[in-house]
Amino acid sequence: MSTTTFTQLLHRLGNQSLYVLDAEIQKSAYVALDLSVTNEMLQTVDVSSSEKLGIYVDNHIKAHDAKVAFGGYLETRGIYRRSDYFNDTNPETERNIHLGLDLWIAAETPIYTPLDGEVHSFQNNTNFGDYGPTIILKHTVDGFEFYTLYGHLSLTSISTIQIGEKFEKGAQIATLGDACVNGDYPPHLHFQIIKDMQGYTGDYAGVASKKDVEFYKENCPDPNLLLRLTSV
């Protein structure tokens, strides 16, 4: 599978009206959110506190009269320094480059699959700062097999789901969790595209180090190719 061909497939699929949140939420109600280390406004926010970061995110949404904040693909973030699971003093191997697209919205918000798919795997990833409850779907389109990952879900989202369970495009697959179960973050969906699961089940790296980011850029293309929240 060539990268170019797979990217072209994603781009073509994105020409449809695809969504992972309620389709009734207009794209004009989404506002970009910068959580990178270069955002000077974050220097006054204790990003190690899910409550204080949540206040910052909520205020950002309200200030723009929006319903959802989004962003984060390939963003270098300082938020992961609070967790030993990501932390590393070596700038080449510290995992701080985000590989998915985050959608910040209230807990219990329904989550939908943008494409026909079946459950590849699911798991509660309980490390501090990890995904918490996670679902991974497998999709097969025009001979291409690939995966989408949904992280920071509610515990009920994985309580009855089964491997191999099929969902049609637009079907609800989950709801969002809160900080008690989602790795201690303000409520949000981590949405990621994965070409090759590399044998992982229920989990896949959502944050990369500088030395590994080129591999992950190829294996985890920009989710905005599907969702089109900004131009591609």
Results as ranks from 00 to 15, higher is better:
residue 201 T to K: 14
residue 173 I to C: 08
residue 42 L to I: 00
residue 181 V to A: 09
residue 177 G to I: 12
residue 171 A to K: 09
residue 179 A to Q: 11
residue 113 T to F: 02
residue 77 R to G: 04
residue 33 L to S: 04
residue 68 V to F: 07
residue 178 D to S: 13
residue 112 Y to Q: 02
residue 225 L to R: 01
residue 124 N to M: 03
residue 169 K to G: 05
residue 127 N to C: 03
residue 124 N to V: 02
residue 228 R to L: 07
residue 103 L to D: 07
residue 5 T to Q: 13
residue 229 L to K: 02
residue 103 L to C: 04
residue 122 F to L: 03
residue 123 Q to K: 14
residue 192 Q to N: 12
residue 109 T to K: 02
residue 53 L to W: 10
residue 157 S to F: 10
residue 173 I to P: 10
residue 210 K to T: 12
residue 101 L to A: 00
residue 212 D to R: 03
residue 34 D to A: 09
residue 32 A to D: 07
residue 196 D to V: 13
residue 99 L to P: 02
residue 157 S to Y: 12
residue 67 K to R: 11
residue 72 G to A: 10
residue 146 F to A: 11
residue 79 I to P: 00
residue 148 T to N: 13
residue 217 K to H: 01
residue 100 G to Q: 06
residue 50 S to P: 06
residue 117 G to H: 10
residue 113 T to P: 07
residue 57 V to M: 08
residue 178 D to G: 11
residue 58 D to W: 05
residue 74 L to N: 13
residue 4 T to M: 11
residue 179 A to W: 00
residue 91 P to Q: 14
residue 137 L to K: 08
residue 9 L to E: 07
residue 232 V to W: 12
residue 158 I to Q: 11
residue 190 H to N: 05
residue 221 P to E: 10
residue 12 R to E: 07
residue 205 A to F: 03
residue 143 G to M: 09
residue 48 S to W: 06
residue 37 V to L: 14
residue 12 R to T: 13
residue 111 I to C: 10
residue 75 E to H: 09
residue 135 I to H: 07
residue 78 G to R: 14
residue 1 M to R: 00
residue 77 R to W: 06
residue 31 V to E: 00
residue 162 Q to S: 15
residue 40 E to F: 03
residue 203 D to Q: 01
residue 14 G to P: 02
residue 7 T to H: 12
residue 42 L to S: 05
residue 194 I to N: 04
residue 188 H to C: 04
residue 81 R to I: 03
residue 179 A to S: 15
residue 69 A to I: 07
residue 164 G to R: 03
residue 132 G to M: 01
residue 210 K to S: 09
residue 213 V to H: 08
residue 214 E to S: 15
residue 154 S to V: 07
residue 174 A to L: 04
residue 31 V to I: 15
residue 75 E to N: 06
residue 75 E to V: 07
residue 197 M to S: 09
